[in-house]
Design a protein around this nucleic acid. Structure first.
Lengths: 343, 343
DNA sequence: CGCCTCTGGTAAAACGTTTTACACGTCAAA
DNA sequence: TTTGACGTGTAAAACGTTTTACCAGAGGCG
């Protein structure tokens, strides 16, 4: 009882119409089909349970109906709240517009064997969303310039002209800096993510500018690398306070590092925020549930993923040539930052 | 300069051979091709940068080269260590054998509009791996019986005959029970995940059997639902100890709940393991890094994902009709369980 | 010399769609 | 009555592969 796959031809036979007619009905292509014929065709489709073959459609239309999400090969990229949020957003929006998503990990072998190119060349996907890229991802150059339906999500590369939609991390740094200054802090540290990530640099730059405007310096001894992880943030906070026992506030480049920093601070006998204020960046779900709840720069990650997906669709449909979007951010005030204690 | 897509036809022209010859060379289909011709064809391929079109290949071979991973619509399924591990494993193995993966979320609309069926009917994918299913997922019935390349990952449904590869959760429960008994515990509680998940029931059953054999009962008052989450585990532990102040040990159905339970216990003034021992299940990465490090039942999740993928390939290639695999588990001893304190 | 087999190769069908170009009325206007 | 326009429908080409069936020539053999 191998149910042979039923094709449009079977529907044609069953309904007594021609191939073309069936296709026209199914795609609402023309009003030319009389209601009676239309009816017959639709009934036949129903009776047979016909479903068009995507491969054939794709071959004809030169579209696969898929987009790829390219994520970096991190220890646990698929178990990360940040990437999870992004993937959810992309999946949600893509399904809405009838697209499906392919998951790819940008491993060295993957890139080296040019599979990122093949995704296009072999007609696997109609577009690619690149998440978690760094300035070291040289292969992105091959996607540069107009014409390729590729969007970098929440980052960009200064070296190449790539489509991107990104949060305003410079503003994020500035806002955090201004806020800490306004609370009265003067000895402020920074735990950044990684210097090969452009947004991390932007955050630092914005932060420095704000401090500078307020007459405060950010010496190198007050800057630590937290590797974007909780453990990294914890270690960085400990190093930072060891070198600068007088520090009263820290900005962390993401919430994970901020939470790690809080752990580290508590661990070394500092109260948060009484002794040291901590400000994060992201505003992930968990930011509201740690102790103390995290004051953080809210970056609209879900929204961003959605927009990136929308813009990618625009590129695919040829409605647009270039995508360069910067999204505003804003502060979320909770409990992890307060004025410094009086000396 | 719209680079027209180059087809096998172009290669044929360029190399002076016929369509068929090119195809034969490319697929190593026959030894009949002379080395000279072969050479010419390969050079042409190289010169033109030809890449076969997957859609055309798929149409011809009736294979899409894709498999779908179906995950449940959880709060943050894509940010969960358990699913992350599974997805990584599947992705790794699938890439190895030249398959790509499609990500799908089993939302109610998705199921209601029969898109899970369409994945097959419309030739989107050659097979499906279902993760995180529960006994309530009635739609799985449509995948039951032989013939469909569908594998349930790390669970199974007693109601339907479905392909599955699963850890031995009954043994897990038994081992944890025996271990706690061997330490000398007598008043032992359980925090399970959800009663609509078969493996959760199995774990409980194995646990009860072990306790029973040791002459210990597991009264209903000692069983709480932890919802598979940290927060749930924390609340469950608190409820459990409130109702049973004399409890000296708890088994949690997964590591997240176990870690939550530890938090809850500490929070209410219990030391772990001195006052209350806690045993988890999963052995996720974080289990080794919490405080105290978690004694837990090791379930080989990565390995399991890989095997599930392998078995799915067997189904797709028709090498096998039915898949039913149970994987053994074992204890990982760390610091969260110890003998109860003497009265 | 006629027949057979082997070697290297090709033409054409098939996969299941969409789209383009044409065909066959019928009916109104010229 | 012709002409053209319209309404309804269809045959055939195209998308890019793989596969099946066939062919031409060369050499071996009786």
């Amino acid at each position: 009882m191998k149910r042979k796959t039923i094709s449009i031809k079977d529907v044609a036979r069953e309904s007594g119409a021609s191939l073309t007619t069936v296709s026209l009905v199914l795609n609402d292509r023309d009003q030319r089909i009389s209601p009676a014929t239309r009816q017959r065709v639709l009934q036949a489709v129903d009776r047979l349970g016909y479903r068009p073959n995507r491969l054939a459609q794709g071959l004809q239309s030169q579209k696969s109906g898929l987009i790829a999400i390219l994520v970096p090969q991190l220890r646990h990229a698929f178990a990360d709240a940040y990437f999870g949020e992004l993937i959810s957003a992309i999946h949600d929006h893509a399904s809405e517009v009838g697209y499906k998503i392919l998951l790819e990990v940008a491993r060295p072998e993957f890139i080296k064997s040019n599979q990122h190119q093949e995704l296009f060349d072999r007609h696997f996907v109609d577009g690619i969303l690149c998440c978690g890229v760094t300035n070291k991802d040289a292969y992105l150059k091959e996607f540069a310039g107009a014409g390729k339906a590729v969007v970098v999500v929440n980052n960009y590369l200064p070296a190449f002209k790539l489509n991107h939609v990104c949060c305003d991390y410079k503003a994020a740094g500035r806002m955090a800096g201004e806020y800490l200054l306004s609370l009265g802090h003067r000895r402020i540290g920074l735990i950044h993510g990684a210097h090969e990530v452009q947004t991390s640099l932007d955050l630092q730059r914005g932060f420095e500018e704000a401090l500078h405007t307020g007459g405060v310096k950010l010496p190198a001894s007050m800057v630590e690398d937290g590797l974007y992880t909780e453990e990294g943030g914890e270690a960085a906070a400990k190093r930072l306070l060891k070198r600068n026992p007088g520090a009263t506030a820290i900005l962390a480049g993401n919430d994970k590092m901020a939470i790690g920093a809080i752990t580290g601070l508590k661990d070394t006998g500092h109260r948060v925020p009484e002794d040291v204020s901590v400000v994060g960046c992201d505003d992930m779900h968990q930011a509201g549930y740690c102790d103390p709840p995290l004051t953080t720069v809210h970056t609209p990650i879900y929204e961003l993923g959605k927009r990136a997906c929308e813009r990618l669709m625009d590129l695919i449909r040829g409605r647009v040539e270039i995508v360069e979007e910067i999204h505003p951010v804003n502060m979320t005030y909770r409990k992890s930052a307060s004025p410094p204690k009086p000396e």
